[in-house]
Simulated assay, not measured.
Amino acid sequence: MRSGFRWRQGAGDAALDGAATARVDWPRTLAAKRNERLTADHFRFVREEAQGGVLHCFLLDCSASMMAGQRLALAKGILVALFDQARIARAEVALVCFGGDGARVRLRPTVPRWWNERWIEPVGGGGGTPLVSGVETAAGLLQQAALVKPAQQRWLWILTDGRSSGTPVRPSDADRVVFVDFDDGQVRLDRCAHLANAWDADSIAYRVFARV
């Protein structure tokens, strides 16, 4: 599965009032779009000066609940597509996987290479959903990155169904947080939406995300 999501350097840039460059704010644009066909009315923009590059830190839920309905396979497909786009944009990525009884840093900040699919595909799943441990591990990684490259913009992407009883704390070194919500069961918990609201973050259903 490949996502059409793009963040190429220069993609979505628009001049507003002939002044600073405005970049498409894709997470909020997708949140506004929901299940509708993407139109001009859905676009949201953000003005910012690009400095120090960008780090996209991905936190992947590999718990047993993500095995249902091929959620983990779908998440890995989206992840591969986003890694490919980061490679084109020369942005850095990092990957933390959590499941069972803890979390593990699978990839420290680096510009991804063309073999992304080869090493992401074997990532397995099972066990509980230690979301708190996963977020804490990602927070430590982001903190280290902030010390090395303080001017870098840091994004945290959390790919999960949110089926965890723990309540993690928002990482202070994450400039932006996006939840890609895989909770599509008959009984939805909407944990991603609740956390996103508490964190001033974005929550996007993976089905919407994958169609763009």
Rank of each mutant, 00 (worst) to 15 (best):
L38V: 10
A40N: 09
D41F: 03
H42W: 06
F43H: 13
F45E: 08
R47S: 13
E49I: 12
E49A: 12
A50Y: 06
Q51T: 12
G53L: 05
L55K: 11
H56D: 15
H56R: 11
C57G: 10
F58M: 13
F58T: 14
L59W: 07
D61T: 09
S63P: 07
A64T: 12
S65F: 00
S65H: 06
M67L: 04
A68V: 07
Q70K: 11
R71V: 01
L72K: 07
A73C: 06
L74G: 01
L74V: 11
L74S: 01
A75K: 10
K76Q: 04
L79K: 11
A81M: 13
D84K: 13
D84N: 09
Q85T: 05
A86S: 15
A89E: 00
A91C: 09
E92C: 08
V93K: 08
A94Q: 06
L95G: 10
V96W: 04
C97I: 07
C97P: 07
G99E: 10
G99D: 05
G99L: 04
D101Y: 08
D101F: 02
G102F: 03
G102L: 14
A103I: 02
R104I: 08
V105I: 10
V105C: 02
L107D: 13
L107Q: 12
V111A: 06
P112V: 00
P112A: 07
W119E: 12
V123M: 01
G128N: 01
T129D: 05
L131S: 12
